[in-house]
Simulated scan of single mutants.
Amino acid sequence: MLVPVLFALGAALSNALATVLQRKAALSVPRSDQLRAGLLLDLLRRPVWLAGIAAVVLAAVCQAVALATGPLTVVQPLFVLELPLALMIAAVLLDGRLPPAGWAAVAAVVTGLAVALAAAAPAGNRTQVPMSHWIPALAVCTAALVGLVAAGLRRPEGRARAACFGLATAIAYATTAALMKTSMHTLDDGGITAFLTTWQTYGFALYGAAALFLLEHAMQAGPLVASQPALTLGDAGLSLVLGIVVYAETVRTGWWLLPQLLGVALVATGVLALAALPLARTLTSEDQPAQVRDEAP
């Protein structure tokens, strides 16, 4: 279990770096009330955004290795650490600082995650999933994603819009991970030809692209305190469900649910506290740092 944990942590760190770089780039382009492909064209001209994409690629490689070697219910919850890591990186890149309350929130997230995973003791590593499991899972996830995007577009810029896009992004990320896991096992068992001919490979590419597209709009839709908790907790929660329902992974039940709920409560409290920090707001349009405003066209 050590290998998937280490690679999942590496992916979380790379994603955290990408988050800081991409948010900085997203603040430097004109905002819009509608989804637009031109946003990505604007971002392609920003070197900081390209550096963020490189970090995303590294994170994807680490995530792929983690999913190929460990349960979805172990790998994806570790991505909860992305937010505290992102804020620590932002403190360096944006000349800010993490106050004592921020460090307490980081401790709550780390402790809560450790308690929840230790109590749940996720197990199982199914390599193939029957279509009878994929069809209902993908139908529900896709319907929820479309519904959240539609709800977000009906709302003005602000917390509700950001939360809708953040949760839609979380669904796209969790679905991407679930599909990627099968693709990685296919690559391991059948080689590159099998990998390129299995539908899950194109499925995770599609959902991954949707996640990236929605993430950029979630960044501009409203404050981080609304979008990031929805993204962080939504990804972990849905990945846990998909791991159990699709991959038949198991977690401990009975009295073990009590420490699991305690761990989840600590994680949720820490994530909400971190997202409300002034340092977190400097990564959103709510409070742009001076150097980002100066770069804007």
Score class of each variant (00 low, 15 high):
Met1Asn: 13
Val3Lys: 08
Val5Lys: 08
Phe7Cys: 02
Ala11Pro: 03
Leu13Asn: 02
Ser14Pro: 04
Ala16Asp: 06
Thr19Phe: 07
Thr19His: 06
Leu21Thr: 13
Ser28Lys: 04
Val29Ala: 07
Arg36Asn: 06
Arg36Gln: 07
Ala37Cys: 05
Leu43Asn: 06
Arg45Trp: 05
Ile53Tyr: 13
Ile53His: 12
Ile53Glu: 14
Leu58Pro: 03
Val65Ala: 11
Val65His: 09
Val65Ser: 10
Leu72Pro: 05
Val74Phe: 00
Leu78Gln: 12
Phe79Trp: 05
Leu85Asn: 07
Ala86Val: 10
Met88Ala: 15
Ile89Met: 15
Ala90Trp: 00
Ala90Tyr: 03
Val92Ile: 11
Leu93Tyr: 00
Leu94Ala: 05
Pro99Ala: 14
Trp103Phe: 14
Ala105Ile: 01
Thr111Lys: 09
Gly112Arg: 10
Val115Thr: 14
Leu117Ser: 09
Ala118Thr: 11
Ala118Gln: 10
Ala120Ser: 13
Pro122Ile: 03
Gly124Val: 05
Asn125Asp: 14
Arg126Glu: 08
Gln128Glu: 10
Met131Pro: 11
His133Gln: 10
Ile135Asn: 05
Ile135Leu: 09
Ala139Pro: 11
Val140Leu: 15
Thr142Asp: 06
Ala143Thr: 14
Ala144Trp: 13
Val149Leu: 14
Gly152Phe: 10
Arg154Pro: 03
Arg155Thr: 01
Arg159His: 10
Arg161Phe: 09
Ala162Met: 01
Ala163Ser: 08
Ala163Gly: 09
Tyr173Met: 10
Tyr173Thr: 14
Ala177Gly: 09
Ala178Gln: 07
Met180His: 02
Thr182Gln: 13
Met184Ser: 05
Thr186Asn: 07
Leu187Thr: 03
Asp188Phe: 08
Thr193Asn: 08
Thr197Phe: 08
Gln200Asp: 02
Gly203Trp: 12
Phe204Thr: 08
Tyr207Ser: 12
Tyr207Asp: 06
Ala211Thr: 12
His217Pro: 03
Gln220Tyr: 00
Ala221Leu: 00
Ala221Tyr: 01
Leu224Ile: 01
Leu224Phe: 02
Gln228Glu: 09
Pro229Arg: 00
Ala230Pro: 07
Leu233Met: 14
Gly234Tyr: 11
Gly234Gln: 14
Asp235Tyr: 12
Gly237Cys: 12
Leu238Ala: 03
Ser239Arg: 07
Gly243Gln: 11
Gly243Phe: 01
Val246Ile: 07
Tyr247Leu: 04
Arg252Tyr: 12
Arg252Asn: 12
Gly254Thr: 01
Gly254Val: 09
Leu257Gln: 03
Gln260Ile: 15
Gln260Ala: 15
Leu261Gln: 05
Leu262Phe: 09
Leu262Ala: 15
Gly263Asp: 03
Val264Arg: 01
Ala265Asp: 14
Val267Gly: 06
Ala268Ile: 15
Gly270Thr: 03
Val271Pro: 00
Val271Asp: 11
Ala273Asn: 00
Leu274Ala: 02
Ala275Gly: 02
Pro278Thr: 14
Ala280Trp: 01
Leu283Gly: 02
Leu283Gln: 13
Leu283Ile: 11
Ser285His: 11
Pro289Lys: 15
Pro289Arg: 15
Val292Ala: 02
Asp294Asn: 03
Asp294Trp: 03
Pro297Leu: 05
